[in-house]
Design a protein around this nucleic acid. Structure first.
Length: 432
DNA sequence: TCTGGGGTCCTAGGACCC
DNA sequence: TCTGGGGTCCTAGGACCC
């Protein structure tokens, strides 16, 4: 038995904790570059703002309907997330943190009324952290996710589902008849693992609701679609196929990619950006004690512009596995040289570290540069320490350019709120 | 003027091998 | 007329997730 604890409109809820005046009004949180809406309050959803809606298309709602837009403040959200997760863990014996606002909790061996217990945890999170959340309970992770969706929808849209399911919904405690009628009222695209493409295909075959989907034979699903969808259907039928991940697996790839604040035309500007991305990626890699064997770099124009399009990536193998910023940046820059074409307005670039391994797995080879490698690794540790202590970018590669107006590629972020919980300067001040 | 970032898994197809 | 079969590895791309 699993529970899924999921913060409501998480980023917006984080902002509201520190600005209660945002309560009750339409609020969106914008992606980098203030590009599009990545979180919406219920009031914003009611205005018809879609997930991912570009800001310039909904801007007029600020005047028309009092919509408030904020730049994303991921430092704040990450910290609020930690607080929420530690309370959610109390629901059961094991927890898997699935995303910044969601965690699965294993409920087996928990006695007593699960719904009552979930309500208690929910109010504790609301009271101690300030984040409203919903809890879904089911015999598989996919059913717990679905239950969570039902709990949220029942709360947000009265009349959509029976009102006693709002906030906490336990699918496992329902009669078959009640479950059936709820599945019949739920569209296939609400299921975890069924996205736009697959739901379109299912609907074309007359499969509209969860009730329709659950009746299908897994073998048919597999031959018509894939093993992935087959697993999803089995999970909906109550057969667990996806286990709780107990210890977070190390990442298999690490990426740093950004859209630019404005179009970039020159190679040397791309090189600055790519150096910066490579440094950030290498830093993440060292944080998980990993080494990379390959470095991928890509550049592309904006698919939304009518301009000539260009998009290319290239993978450069490293001579030996490495987590060294200079070594990774060099590989990325070598790749960039080879794929760059002049005459395009570049909108985005990225660096990905692939084929990762743990630093302990390094092959023992006869190596005349052994000592200098040790020195490099000490230097990297010092670099990370200084950047951690004095702020990101205190020390960086010379080719990454300097902060400020010279970096034409840096992103726009004009609506960020203070880092209330992670920066002393931004600590809220209580006034008497 | 203006459209995010970071992941995972699976599949198809090509190259290569015996 | 007619051109094997099976395996592995790699890459690109699709689909999904939040």
């Amino acid at each position: 038995m699993y529970a899924l604890v999921d913060g409501n409109n998480f980023y917006v809820s984080c902002e509201r904790v520190f600005r209660p005046s945002l309560e009750g009004i339409p609020v969106v949180v914008l992606s980098n570059n203030d590009g599009c809406a990545i979180a919406r309050s219920n009031e914003a959803k009611a205005l018809g703002i879609a997930m991912g809606a570009p800001w310039f298309q909904i801007k007029h709602l600020a005047e028309q309907s009092g919509l408030v837009a904020l730049s994303a403040n991921f430092e704040l959200y990450g910290d609020m997330s930690d607080r929420m997760m530690s309370l959610a863990a109390g629901l059961g014996h094991a927890q898997e943190i699935y995303s910044i606002d969601e965690s699965f909790v294993e409920l087996s061996g928990i006695r007593g009324d699960l719904v009552e217990r979930a309500h208690k945890v929910r109010s504790r999170i609301l009271q101690w952290v300030g984040i409203p959340c919903c809890v879904g309970i089911g015999s598989t992770k996919t059913l717990a996710k679905l239950a969570n969706h039902i709990g949220k929808t029942a709360e947000r849209k009265p009349g959509s589902y029976p009102s006693h399911l709002a906030q906490v919904c336990n699918l496992a405690a329902m009669s078959p008849e009640e479950r059936d009628s709820i599945f019949a009222a739920t569209a296939v695209q609400e299921v975890w693992g069924v996205g736009r493409q697959i739901s379109k295909q299912l609907q074309a075959g007359g499969i509209q609701t969860v009730k329709d989907l659950i009746r299908l034979d897994p073998a048919t699903i597999r031959s018509h679609w894939s093993v992935v969808l087959e697993r999803t259907v089995r999970e909906l039928q109550g057969t667990p196929c996806i286990d709780l991940e107990h210890n977070p697996a190390p990442k298999k790839e690490i990426a740093t990619t950004r859209s630019f604040g404005r179009p970039v035309l020159e190679l040397h500007q791309l090189a600055e950006a790519v150096t910066d991305f490579a440094s950030r990626a290498a830093e993440k890699l060292r944080k998980q004690s990993g080494m990379a064997n390959q470095v991928l770099v890509y550049i592309r124009t904006s698919p939304f512009r009518p301009d000539p399009q260009y998009s290319r990536s290239i993978t450069t193998p490293l001579r030996r596995p490495s987590a060294d910023t200079a070594c990774i940046a060099k590989a990325a820059l070598d790749g960039l040289q080879r794929i760059f074409q002049p005459g395009f307005k570049y909108a985005k670039a990225g660096v990905m570290l692939l084929d990762l391994q743990h630093e302990g797995q390094q092959q023992c080879e006869l190596d005349l540069e052994g000592d200098s490698q040790k020195d490099r690794s000490t230097l990297m540790t010092a670099l990370d320490g200084l950047n951690q202590r004095y702020g990101k970018g205190t020390l960086h590669m010379a080719s990454a350019g300097v902060e400020g107006s010279k970096r034409v590629w840096s992103m726009k972020q004009e609506r960020r709120t203070p880092r209330y919980t992670t920066s002393w300067e931004d600590l809220p001040v209580a006034k008497a």
